[in-house]
Structures are given as C-alpha cells and as structure tokens.
C-alpha cells in the first residue's frame, strides 16, 4: 500500500490533539457583568445612531421634495425671465456694429 505522509502526520498529531484540557472553563469573575454592560452600551449607541439615521434620511427626503416643488412652481417664471433678459440684453457685437 502506498504511503500517505499526510495520513501518517494527522494520526501522529491526533495523539496530542486532545490532551486533557484542565484549564478553567467557567467565566472569570466580572466577565458576564462587563459583557452585559458593554452589550447594553452598544445597544443604546446603536439605537441612538439608528434614530439619528432615520431622522437624517427623512430630513434629506423632505429637503429634496421641497427643492423639487420649488423648481416645479417657479420654472415658468424663471424661463420667462431668462427669455426676457435675452431679448432685452444688449448684444455686444450689435452694439459695436452700431458704433461703427
């Protein structure tokens, strides 16, 4: 049978893979209290930031809507005024020709 170094290695490594792990597995004193306090802090920070995010998006939406409405209501007045200005404006070339 062909030698498989990988299988031999993993077999040898398994011999030390599960030594009796007698290290402490109970939570150190104060660990749970610290974790719960941090989780609470994060939750509060998260809820404040998500509240702020919702409000910010809402404000942005409102601002966009107001901007769109003001453009819609004033577009005719603006275009009329531009046309008027163009008609009334002194064309510098014409003015120059008149002078000559």
């Amino acid at each position: 049978m062909k030698t498989d170094p990988w299988n031999n290695l993993i077999k040898a490594a398994r011999a030390t893979a599960t030594p009796a792990d007698d290290r402490e597995v109970t939570a150190p004193a104060g660990f749970a209290t610290r974790v719960v306090a941090l989780a609470r802090e994060q939750a509060e920070a998260g809820s404040w930031s998500s509240w702020f995010e919702v409000k910010a998006w809402r404000a942005l939406g409102m601002a966009g809507a107001i901007a769109a409405l003001s453009v819609a209501f004033n577009i005719s007045a603006v275009t009329d005024s531009i046309e008027q200005e163009v008609l009334e404006a002194d064309d510098p070339i014409t003015a120059l020709m008149d002078l000559s």
Binding site: T3, P5, W6, N8, L9, K11, A12, A13, A15, T16
Partner: peptide, 14 residues
C-alpha cells in the same frame, strides 16, 4: 517519520 510510514513512537515525536 511520516514519509517512511513509521508511527510516532514517543510523546516527543507526537
């Protein structure tokens, strides 16, 4: 050891 298909004979080898 692993390429010659020998088993790890003592704890140090393991």
């Amino acid at each position: 050891v692993v390429t010659r298909d020998e088993s790890a004979s003592h704890a140090g080898e393991a």
